[in-house]
């Protein structure tokens, strides 16, 4: 897309990369231009006028000058710092996961207002949410749908016949559920239970406030987590690093807990 020499936009900061002595390359998700990268000059000096306005996972308003190679951010003003996202490590890591998914899945410079709003709304909901697992699944399914990877869950993805109410197979390659006769002898299949299938359908067709009413058992929630993670990995052809971090975070918590209990036992 052809941009004017100097343009204004709002954006969510997805990622930072150090550049040179005191600069950063910032990856931004904007409503009209989609994912763009721009240089924030001098931002690593504490006296920079932009410092604090361009933190990862903040909603900010920008003035950007078109550069020869990379664009240059000339002004930045924070709109919403999402303070509550930063107060808790597990919420923060989930926020990072949202940003990483958007960064990995969206093409450069292709505006998508639905994705933009989905990201900004989900960051807001994440600050308030008590069940972030459903929220993450909601985000994944809607992001994938918007970008053309909507899981096909109403009928069999191959023969289009309606699915009988039982456990089925999900084909990562075809991006949908297969009926028993179509799934015979195929590879890259994941089991999907009937309950998980129903939850997935509900997530795809409803708004988040409606999805909040879902009460999902732990086993089903874990099943969907696993299925979506594999589906995402299949399409990205790589790991989502913050997803790996989230998994490890939970295991450290229990390990650290044990360690602390042991060290206390030594004292008393």
């Amino acid at each position: 897309m052809n941009r004017p020499k100097v343009y204004k936009t709002e954006a969510i900061v997805l990622q930072h990369m150090i550049l040179g002595e005191a600069d950063r390359i910032v990856t931004l998700y904007t409503p009209d231009l989609g994912k763009i990268r721009a240089v924030a000059k001098g931002i690593r000096r504490p006296s920079s006028k932009m410092v604090g306005h361009l933190e990862v996972l903040s909603h900010t308003s920008l003035l950007i000058a078109r550069g020869r190679n990379l664009d240059i951010i000339t002004q930045a003003h924070l709109i919403n710092p999402f303070t509550k996202l930063r107060d808790d490590l597990s919420i923060l890591s989930r926020g990072c996961y949202l940003a990483e998914l958007v960064n990995d899945f969206t093409p450069d410079e292709e505006g998508n207002l639905v994705v933009y709003n989905l990201l900004i709304n989900t960051m807001g909901w994440l600050q308030e949410s008590s069940d972030s697992e459903i929220l993450l699944r909601y985000f994944e399914t809607h992001l994938l749908s918007e970008l053309g990877y909507r899981p096909h869950v109403q009928t069999c993805v191959t023969c289009q016949r309606s699915l009988s109410p039982q456990d089925h197979n999900f084909s990562l390659r075809d991006g949908g559920v297969l009926c028993p006769s179509c799934s015979h002898g195929l590879k890259d299949l994941e089991r999907i239970s009937l309950t998980a299938l129903k939850v997935l359908r509900y997530l795809l067709d409803n708004s988040y406030p409606q999805c909040l009413r879902l009460r999902v058992e732990n086993t089903v929630s874990e099943e969907l987590d696993r299925l979506m993670a594999r589906y995402i990995r299949y399409h990205l052809d790589g790991e989502v690093r913050s997803a790996g971090f989230l998994k490890r975070l939970d295991s450290w918590k229990s390990k650290e807990h044990q360690r602390l209990r042991k060290s206390l036992e030594g004292v008393f």
Binding site: V56, E100, E239, R241, G244, R248
Partner: peptide, 11 residues
């Protein structure tokens, strides 16, 4: 530093 985006954790 811990960085979820690069999967750098305490260990």
């Amino acid at each position: 530093a811990i960085n979820p985006m690069n999967n750098i954790g305490p260990e």
